[in-house]
Simulated scan of single mutants.
Amino acid sequence: MKWVDYEADWAYWINPVTFRMPRVKKAVPEGVVVLTKEREVVDTGQSYIATEYGFAEENGVKQITKPEATDILTEQMLDYMRERDAYPVNTEIVREYANGNVEIEYKPSDYDRFIIKLTPELIGGDVLQFLEDLADASDLEGMPDPWRIEPAKSGRAKCRTCKQTIPKGELRIGEPSYFDGKLTYKWHHLKCGRDFLQGYSFEKLAGYVDLTNEQKRELEEFVPR
């Protein structure tokens, strides 16, 4: 994952792997939607929060419209659903149409809302049946997060970020991936993959309960809450 510099006083990016929305800290990954916030004051003295949308590319963050951001999120959400056979967090079916279209509300925060429209053409079949076959995200509450944290077991696995091996015993972050319907992991050094965990509750990470107190402190030092 390549990162591009982005300086903003108040901005977030939507992680297409988790559909959580961590705050921007000087840089964002390529290929993500960015929401930049600013408080505006009108003539009456009242204020409101204005949101600008962007898309992170190799040369920086390009400004886009909300409909364009929604189109990008629709593609990313469909990839998520097909790969994990599950709904992303913070999603809910809000409308069904006679023509087979279905609208899903995605709320990454209390103040941001996207309507994702799925069509039979986009899905390649019956949308409702496709959605009914997915695991409901609400059913996963309280279960360990599919992301994993653990000490490297062998020292042979390579970090997917920097391509270097992860020494045996060193903490590594497991990015969930699915092969032939089974859960597997793409591993990252803790220092390389820590941005993936922004906005996460460590207690829900698979493997967290098995860490020693020293390892938990190391995780908290690398990934401030």
Score class of each variant (00 low, 15 high):
A135T: 12
G155F: 03
L73S: 11
E38T: 04
V17Y: 13
F179H: 15
D112Y: 00
P22F: 00
K158I: 03
R84E: 09
E40W: 05
E7A: 12
V209I: 03
R156C: 04
A11K: 02
A86C: 07
K117S: 14
V32P: 12
M21P: 07
M81V: 01
N99T: 09
E203T: 03
I93N: 12
L171G: 11
C162G: 05
I104G: 00
Y97G: 03
F202A: 10
E220A: 15
L205D: 00
I116A: 07
I115L: 09
S138L: 13
P176L: 14
E170G: 06
G155H: 05
Y80K: 01
L128D: 07
E150S: 09
K107V: 01
Q198E: 11
P146Y: 04
C159G: 03
E220P: 01
D5W: 05
E83Q: 13
F179M: 12
E38S: 10
I14R: 09
K25F: 09
V209K: 13
D136R: 13
R23W: 09
S138D: 14
E75P: 03
E68V: 03
E96D: 08
Y106I: 11
K26D: 14
P151S: 09
D79K: 12
M143R: 13
A50W: 02
V32Y: 06
W13V: 03
G155A: 10
R39D: 15
V89D: 15
P176A: 13
L73G: 10
I14M: 14
Y200A: 07
I123T: 14
R82G: 00
I115V: 15
L190D: 02
K2F: 01
P167C: 12
N15A: 15
K2V: 04
T65D: 01
E218A: 09
G142D: 10
I14L: 15
N90I: 01
S154C: 01
E221Q: 09
G199T: 06
V94D: 13
L140A: 14
E221H: 10
H188K: 09
D139M: 08
E92Y: 11
W13E: 08
P176G: 13
K168T: 13
R156G: 05
Y178I: 04
E121P: 02
M21L: 08
K163F: 11
I173L: 14
D145P: 00
A206V: 00
E68G: 07
T70G: 04
E40H: 04
V33Y: 06
V89W: 10
V42T: 09
S138I: 08
D112P: 04
K66R: 15
T212C: 07
R84S: 00
D85F: 06
W187T: 12
F196N: 14
D112H: 07
D139P: 01
W187Q: 13
P120W: 09
A86W: 02
F114C: 00
G181C: 05
F202S: 06
E121N: 09
E141W: 07
A8I: 07
E221D: 14
Y87N: 02
P120D: 06
G31T: 00
L131H: 07
D136K: 02
G207N: 05
D85E: 10
V4A: 05
Y97I: 05
T44H: 02
E83R: 11
D180G: 12
R95M: 15
S138G: 04
L122S: 10
